[in-house]
C-alpha cells in the first residue's frame, strides 16, 4: 500500500525540474540553511563547562564541571546526590520512585539536562556561552 522506496523515487531529477519553481528553490535553500543553522547551534557538541542545579523554580547553585565533587541537594522528597567528575555530571542518588533521573546517567554536552520531577531538582549543562539563549525567553 505505502512503500518507502517508491515514495522516495519521487525525488527524481525530472520531477524536480518540472515542478520546483524558482521561488520553491528559494524556500528550499532557505529551509536548508535554517536546518544547518539549527544543527550548528543546537548540536554544537560543545563540552559543557558548568552545571546548573535547579530546585523548584529557583537556581540552587552553579558549579564548574572541572572538579571532582559530590553535591547533596535537599529536594521536596529528600536528599539527592549529584556527582560531578571529569567534565560530566549525573544524579547518583535520588529519593524518587521512578529513578529516571539516575538512569539518565552522565551528562557531558552543553544543553543536556536531567530532570527529576518528583523531587523537583534538575540539572542543566551549560557551555561557556549558553548556546540557545534565544529559546529561553
Amino acid at each position: 500500500m505505502f512503500n518507502l522506496p517508491r515514495y522516495l523515487k519521487l525525488l527524481n531529477p525530472k520531477l524536480i525540474t518540472q515542478h520546483v519553481l524558482s521561488g520553491d528553490w528559494l524556500v528550499l535553500i532557505a529551509g536548508l540553511l535554517c536546518v544547518l543553522y539549527l544543527f550548528q547551534t543546537l548540536w554544537s557538541g560543545e563540552h559543557a563547562a558548568k552545571v546548573q542545579i535547579r530546585l523548584g523554580d529557583k537556581i540552587y547553585a552553579t558549579y564548574s564541571l572541572n572538579q571532582q565533587r559530590e553535591v547533596h541537594v535537599h529536594g521536596k522528597l529528600g536528599d539527592a546526590v549529584i556527582v560531578i567528575a571529569q567534565g560530566k555530571a549525573r544524579f547518583s542518588k535520588s529519593p524518587c520512585t521512578t529513578q529516571y533521573c539516575v538512569h539518565q546517567g552522565w551528562l557531558s554536552h552543553a544543553g543536556q539536562a536531567a530532570i527529576c520531577l518528583p523531587n523537583q531538582i534538575s540539572l542543566e549543562l551549560m557551555g561557556d556561552a549558553k548556546p540557545y539563549d534565544a529559546l529561553n525567553y
Binding site: 515514495y7 525525488l11 539549527l38 543536556q112 539536562a113
Partner: peptide, 22 residues
C-alpha cells in the same frame, strides 16, 4: 517545560524539510 527538547529540534527540522519537499 524545559530546554532539553532543543536537542531534537534539528532532527525534526530536517525531517520537515525532506518530507515537505517530497
Amino acid at each position: 517545560p524545559h530546554a532539553g527538547v532543543a536537542y531534537l529540534i534539528p532532527v525534526f527540522a530536517s525531517a520537515a524539510l525532506f518530507f515537505g519537499l517530497i
